[in-house]
Simulated assay, not measured.
Amino acid sequence: MGLWQRLILYGKGGHGGIPQKTIDPIVATSAVIQGIQTIVSRNLSPIDSAVVSIGTIEGGTANNVICEHVHMSGTVRTFSKETREKMPEILSQKVEDIARGYGAIGKVTYRFDLPAVVNEKELYDLACESVRDLYGEEGIVDPIPTTGGEDFSIFTEKKPGFFYWLGSGNPQKGCVNQWHSPNFKADTDCLIVGANVLAQSAVNYMLKYKK
Score class of each variant (00 low, 15 high):
Met1Ile: 02
Met1Ser: 03
Gly2Asn: 10
Gly2Glu: 09
Leu3Trp: 15
Leu3Arg: 11
Gln5Thr: 07
Leu7Met: 05
Ile8Ala: 13
Ile8Val: 08
Leu9Gly: 03
Tyr10Gly: 05
Tyr10Cys: 11
Gly11Trp: 13
Gly11Gln: 11
Gly14Gln: 03
Gly16Glu: 02
Gly17Asn: 05
Ile18Ser: 12
Gln20Met: 07
Lys21His: 14
Ile23Asp: 13
Asp24Ala: 14
Asp24Arg: 09
Asp24Glu: 06
Pro25Thr: 04
Ile26Tyr: 15
Ile26Pro: 07
Val27Pro: 09
Val27Cys: 12
Ile33Gly: 13
Ile33Ala: 07
Gln34Cys: 06
Ile36Ala: 00
Gln37Cys: 12
Ile39Leu: 14
Ile39Asn: 01
Ser41Ala: 07
Ser41Gln: 02
Arg42Trp: 04
Asn43Trp: 03
Leu44Pro: 14
Leu44Trp: 06
Pro46Trp: 07
Asp48Ile: 00
Asp48Ser: 10
Ala50Asn: 13
Ser53Gly: 07
Ile54Asn: 15
Ile54Arg: 04
Ile57Trp: 08
Asn63Phe: 07
Asn64Ala: 07
Ile66Pro: 10
Met72Arg: 00
Ser73Leu: 09
Gly74Asn: 06
Val76Cys: 10
Val76Glu: 00
Thr78Pro: 03
Phe79Lys: 07
Ser80Lys: 08
Lys81Ile: 03
Glu85Phe: 10
Lys86Pro: 00
Lys86Gly: 01
Pro88His: 14
Glu89Ile: 08
Ile90Asn: 00
Leu91Asn: 14
Leu91Glu: 02
Gln93Tyr: 06
Gln93Ile: 12
Ala99Cys: 12
Ala99Ile: 06
Gly103Asn: 12
Gly106Ala: 00
Lys107Val: 12
Val108Asp: 03
Thr109Ala: 03
Tyr110Gln: 08
Arg111Val: 00
Asp113Lys: 08
Leu114Asp: 00
Val117Tyr: 13
Asn119Gly: 10
Glu120Phe: 05
Lys121Asn: 15
Glu122Thr: 15
Glu122Ala: 14
Tyr124Phe: 13
Asp125Cys: 01
Leu126Phe: 14
Ala127Met: 13
Val131Trp: 01
Val131His: 01
Asp133Leu: 03
Leu134Thr: 08
Leu134Cys: 11
Leu134Met: 06
Glu137Tyr: 01
Glu137Pro: 06
Glu138Leu: 00
Glu138His: 01
Gly139Glu: 01
Gly139Leu: 00
Ile140Asn: 03
Asp142Pro: 02
Ile144Ala: 05
Ile144Trp: 02
Ile144Cys: 08
Thr147Tyr: 11
Gly148Gln: 09
Gly149Arg: 00
Glu150Asn: 07
Glu150Pro: 04
Ile154Ser: 11
Ile154Phe: 10
Phe155Asp: 09
Thr156Met: 06
Glu157Gln: 12
Lys158His: 06
Phe162Trp: 07
Phe163Ser: 11
Asn170Glu: 13
Asn170His: 08
Asn170Lys: 03
Asn170Ala: 06
Pro171Ser: 04
Gln172Val: 11
Val176Ile: 12
Asn177Trp: 01
Gln178Tyr: 13
His180Tyr: 14
His180Asp: 06
Ser181Cys: 02
Phe184Tyr: 10
Lys185His: 11
Lys185Asp: 14
Thr188Asp: 15
Asp189Tyr: 12
Cys190Ser: 04
Leu191His: 02
Val193Gly: 05
Val193Asn: 14
Gly194Thr: 12
Leu198Val: 09
Ser201Leu: 07
Ser201Arg: 09
Ala202Val: 12
Ala202Glu: 05
Ala202Phe: 11
Asn204Thr: 14
Asn204Asp: 08
Tyr205Ala: 04
Met206Phe: 10
Lys208Val: 01
Lys210Gly: 02
Lys211Ser: 09
Lys211Glu: 10
